[in-house]
Design a protein around this nucleic acid. Structure first.
Length: 420
RNA sequence: GGAGGGCUCGCCUAGUGGCCGAUGGCGCCGGUCUUGAAAACCGGUAUGGGGAAACUCAUCGUGGGUUCGAAUCCCACGCCCUCCGCCA
């Protein structure tokens, strides 16, 4: 939810943001009207309520003949108050709906345009020279690390088994991510994979992404698509102490995505799957620190990419391709030799106060006044990383070199050899 | 799944229809005293909305109801705790 005060002061700023995103500016005017309507309705209710309260207070002290008159009047008022209350509630709900419809204000400097209009900030590392690179499925099958066929047999398409060194590789990678996070002061966390509707709603995943989310009808719970959901909702309705700086978490969870509408897209291998594992960073900080924190999360991601020795590029995602909560988003895309192109492996978003406002997460400013906090999230490692790791480090004989930093997490192994 | 108990302002707690946005203690903040500290004493200490302000409205797990008036009475739901059963 955007800041309504900002909206009242400078509606044009919000309209400009909508234009950058390619979203209708009418939503902004709808919201303005809903805001005004709510204030008017609230005012009407409160005036009546105030009168009712003061008359009610006089009843016990009134003389018997006064009392009859007062009771008659208050009885009338009670009905009026009830009606005004209902109107105010309706106006409130209308405001909330209009409020939810407006995405976060795009940060200055975000490239305009859609999915393809990102700006490449930098390319890091040399692309490997591999003749006829195998893709991660072939390599993974050779290592008996990835079993797509049995994944499909047991669970359907877009499911897989990681076995042997595949399982070890994922565990090692994620453990290395957690270790790095801890080293940098993040609180390692293992989070619920099932959350209540409020948590899903509050983090903004039931908006345009609702069809991406698995829902357990019988229990009215949702499977999270990322531990961001649980981590963001962790502090719902709380006032945090951010005196000492941002509060940082690294959450480990399995992630579940329906991938509805992506039929036929990236069907091979583990690039786009219904279930994967991830270590996700999440920060709560003061709004004025959010931009700096965003760069810190990006630096964490790049540190991980350096450790696994994968060439990558960093992109500044265009306004039209931002999620509704994000004011800015940087993706790291790893080089995938078999596809001869870069693919997204991390994504870090600065949600400013948008997400925290919805979840009612605040902190105390220098004057001790509660203010809405800012939230940020970013990927540290996921199952998907196995793709560039296997492919970039593949050897002609089908074995895979283990990056040095990862070796301690794989029992000291420096090479993964095919299993006949 | 069954039976019982509970949910009040950071924590503990008082409060069975109007004098209650709510008692007291602890904690925390400020002050007095002290060379400094402790103790003692005094004062302060929820959040949100509207309003330039005075002020006003809402909130005692959540939602409804009764009533002129609800923390207090009624109904439903949620969560926590204890015990029994079941599963692991």
């Amino acid at each position: 939810m955007i800041d309504l005060r900002l909206l009242r002061e400078d509606p044009e700023l919000i309209r400009a943001s909508q234009r950058l995103r390619g979203e209708p500016t009418e939503l902004v005017d709808d919201l303005l009207h809903a805001d005004e309507a709510r204030r008017a309705a609230t005012q009407r209710f409160e005036t009546l309520r105030s009168e009712q309260n003061s008359l009610s207070k006089r009843i016990p002290k009134a003389s018997p003949d006064e009392r009859a008159g007062l009771l008659a009047r208050t009885k009338e008022l009670a009905a009026e108050v009830k009606a005004a209350d209902a109107e105010a509630s309706a106006a409130n709900e209308a405001l909330r709906a209009a409020h939810l419809a407006v995405p976060n204000v795009v940060q200055d400097g975000v490239p305009p345009g859609g999915e393809d209009d990102f700006v490449v900030l930098r390319e890091v590392g040399d692309l490997p020279a591999i003749d006829n690179p195998k893709d991660h499925v072939d390599i993974g099958e050779g290592l008996k690390a990835i079993d797509m066929e049995r994944g499909a047999k047991v669970s359907g398409s877009r499911f897989y088994f990681l076995t042997g060194v595949g399982a070890l590789l994922q565990l090692g990678l994620l453990q290395m991510a957690v270790a790095q996070a801890v080293e940098h002061g993040f609180v390692p966390s293992i989070t619920p994979s099932l959350v209540k509707p409020e948590s899903m709603e509050g983090t903004g995943f039931l908006g345009s992404h609702a069809s991406e989310v698995y829902r357990l009808e019988a229990d009215d719970l949702y499977l999270v698509g990322t531990s961001e959901v649980a981590l963001a909702a962790y502090h719902t309705n709380e006032i945090l102490d951010l005196e000492a700086g941002p509060e940082r978490f690294a959450g480990w969870s399995s992630c579940y995505r329906r991938e509805a509408g992506s039929y036929g897209k990236d069907v091979r291998g583990i690039l786009r799957v219904h279930q994967f594992d991830k270590v996700e960073m999440f920060s709560f900080c003061r709004p004025e620190d959010a931009a700096e924190e965003h760069l810190r999360l990006l630096a964490m991601e790049e540190e991980m990419l350096a450790k696994v020795e994968i060439p990558y590029r960093v992109i500044d995602v265009a306004a039209g391709d931002l999620g509704s909560s994000a004011s800015r988003k940087y993706d790291c895309e790893a080089w995938v030799p078999s596809q001869n192109r870069y693919r997204e492996v991390t994504s870090t978003s600065n949600c400013t106060t948008f997400q925290a406002r919805r979840l009612n997460i605040r902190y105390r400013d220098a004057d001790g006044k509660p203010q809405t906090a800012a939230t940020l999230n970013g990927t540290l490692a996921t199952t998907r990383w196995l793709i560039p790791i296997l492919e970039n480090h593949q050897q002609p004989d089908g074995s895979v070199r283990v990056p040095k930093a990862l070796q301690p997490y794989l029992g000291g192994r420096d090479i993964l050899k095919p299993v006949r």
